[in-house]
Amino acid sequence: MLYINCPHCGLRSQNEFAYGGDATVKRPELNKEISDQEWDNFVYLRKSPRGKHLELWHHISGCRQWIKVERDTSTHEIFKTYTANEAIE
């Protein structure tokens, strides 16, 4: 079981969190004219790399904050965790 350092609460066990997928996806702005391709990429395309990946986790049984976790998907090593809107290094 992973041990995730919530930037708001500290080290907590994985079972307090819900996985939220690829954190590098950016929603297109409202009212913006965009192509079908662009929209489809946003709705359906997600990165799933082997290795370092920036992911969303939701601390549902804790502070209810969405956080970003930089994790190695093959070794489960967690390098850094960020608040929702922190700049990613």
């Binding site: 939701h58 549902i60 929702a84």
Partner: peptide, 12 residues
């Protein structure tokens, strides 16, 4: 969770 997602990540 859906509302929190948009408030915290998309439209902070």
């Amino acid at each position: 969770s859906h509302l929190e997602y948009y408030l915290q990540l998309v439209w902070p």
